[in-house]
């Protein structure tokens, strides 16, 4: 079975109901920098991955498990997933 290579990015963000004091502090720093008009600033994490899987569906399944059980804590965080096949020339 040949494996395909994929690139993925998982974005983890705090759920809207969860206070983000670091985001608030950064928003006040933005003001001090002179950048006005920012009404919302929330800090999350971006996790970049490369993986091998039989097909895109399998890759997505693995990444969903990873995101839900390890990368994000569903009690306080939401996550979203971007998944692209990696071009074979760059492999």
């Amino acid at each position: 079975m040949t494996l395909q290579r994929f690139q993925a990015r998982v974005l983890v963000s705090l759920r809207p109901s969860v206070l983000d004091p670091a985001g608030e502090a950064t928003r006040s720093a933005a003001k001090r920098l002179g950048v006005e008009g920012i009404t919302k600033l929330r800090i999350g994490k971006a996790v970049e991955l490369e993986l091998e899987a039989a097909d895109e569906a399998e890759a997505r399944k693995q990444l969903e498990l990873l995101s839900d059980r390890l990368l994000a804590n569903p009690v306080i965080e939401d996550w979203s997933l971007e998944l692209h096949p990696q071009s074979t020339t760059s492999a």
């Binding site: 206070l19 004091p21 804590n73 306080i76």
Partner: peptide, 17 residues
């Protein structure tokens, strides 16, 4: 214990940072 799911909820960054 909260990450493990033996207790509910989560511990997050102190409000004061």
């Amino acid at each position: 214990l909260t990450e493990l799911g033996l207790l509910p909820g989560a511990l997050t960054r102190n409000r004061s940072l």
